[in-house]
Write a protein that binds this DNA or RNA. Structure first.
Length: 273
DNA sequence: TCCTTATGTACAA
DNA sequence: TGTACCTAAGGAC
C-alpha cells in the first residue's frame, strides 16, 4: 500500500530479485500483454523510484515500465514457485528464483527515456532521493496561501508524501494543518523535511509507517497496540474520536480535497509557527 | 451478498 | 468540486 516508502522499497526489492537477469514477463489479466511480450527475455538493468512512481528499466535499449499504484495497487513478491496467477494480475515478472505480481495499478505502461524525464520534471523533490533537498519545495510553500496540509499532498511540491505521512508529520511538529504555506518559516519547513527524510527511510526499512517516538510506543505507555491494516504505530492517522496519546484530547477528522485529514486541535493549535 | 472504505490521481465542468 | 478508475478486505445483513 502506497506512499513513497513503499515505492522505494519496491525498487530495491526488484533490484535484489531481478536485476541483471532475464525475466519472463506476462500479463495474466491481459491489459499489458503486448508490452510484456516485448520485455520477455530482456534483462532488468535498473530500477528507480521518484515519489510514488516506480520505474523498471529493461536493457539493452532504454525502455522503462512506468508503474503507479494509485490507491488500490499492490505487489506480491516472493520466492518461486509463484502462486497460480489470478486474472487480476496486470504484470508478472518471473525468473528461476523469484516472482513479482502487480495488481490494480493506476498506471502500468512502457515509456521512453524522454517520457520518463517528463514525469520527473513534474514532480517535486522526494525526501527519499539522496540528491533532493527542501529548497524547491519551500520556494513554492512560502509563496502559497494554500494550507500546509494540501501542499504536503501535492506531488509537484513534495513527492512521495501521502495521507499518513502528512497527518503524522504535522502532528509531530505541532502544526495546525490549516496553516497557510506562506506562514511557515524556512526553519520550520526544514524541520518537517528532515523529519520526513528520517520517517520515510525508516518506512522503507520496516515496510510500514511507524511514526511514534520511543517514549510513546504502546509498551512505553502501557496502552494496547494499534490494530489497523496500514500496519504501523501512529499518533493521529485514522484515530478520529480516539484520545490523543500526548494530551488525552479527542483526535479530529475532516475532509480536505476529498481526503480524510486527522489532527489533534490541542497539540496542533492554530497560529503556531 | 452487498456496501463501505482505503496509504491516489486525472480529468470534466 | 465531482466523478471515474483500479482491487481487496471488513462489516452489516
Amino acid at each position: 500500500m502506497p506512499e513513497g516508502h513503499t515505492i522505494h522499497r519496491l525498487a530495491q526489492d526488484h533490484t535484489t530479485l531481478f536485476a541483471g537477469r532475464k525475466a519472463t514477463v506476462t500479463s495474466p489479466q491481459g491489459k499489458f500483454s503486448d508490452a510484456a511480450d516485448l520485455l520477455t527475455g530482456r534483462e532488468l538493468t535498473r530500477t528507480e523510484a521518484h515519489g510514488k512512481h516506480l520505474f523498471l528499466g529493461f536493457g539493452p535499449a532504454d525502455s522503462w515500465v512506468h508503474i503507479h499504484l494509485g490507491l488500490f495497487g499492490t505487489y506480491a513478491m516472493g520466492a518461486t514457485p509463484a502462486p497460480p496467477p489470478t486474472d487480476t494480475v496486470r504484470l508478472r515478472l518471473l525468473n528461476e528464483s523469484a516472482y513479482a505480481d502487480l495488481r490494480g495499478p493506476t498506471t502500468c505502461a512502457l515509456i521512453t527515456d524522454a517520457e520518463k524525464q517528463a514525469i520527473h520534471e513534474r514532480l517535486g523533490p522526494d525526501p527519499l532521493r539522496p540528491s533532493d533537498g527542501p529548497a524547491k519545495a519551500y520556494a513554492r510553500i512560502s509563496r502559497s496561501r494554500t494550507t500546509i496540509a494540501a501542499l504536503l499532498m501535492d506531488q509537484k511540491v513534495v513527492a512521495g508524501v501521502g495521507n499518513v505521512y502528512r497527518a503524522e508529520v504535522l502532528f509531530r511538529h505541532g502544526i495546525d494543518p490549516y496553516t497557510p504555506g506562506r506562514d511557515l518559516t524556512e526553519a520550520r519547513f526544514t524541520q518537517i523535511w528532515d523529519d520526513l527524510v528520517a520517517l520515510m527511510r525508516e518506512g522503507v526499512r520496516l515496510g510500514r509507517i511507524d511514526t511514534v517516538r520511543p517514549e510513546h510506543t504502546p509498551e512505553a505507555m502501557n496502552r494496547p497496540p494499534r490494530v489497523d491494516d496500514h500496519g504501523g504505530e501512529v499518533y493521529v492517522y485514522r484515530r478520529a474520536d480516539q484520545t490523543c496519546h500526548l494530551c488525552g484530547g479527542e483526535i479530529r477528522t475532516a475532509a480536505l480535497a476529498a481526503r480524510n485529514l486527522f489532527w489533534c486541535p490541542t497539540c496542533q493549535p492554530p497560529g503556531a509557527r
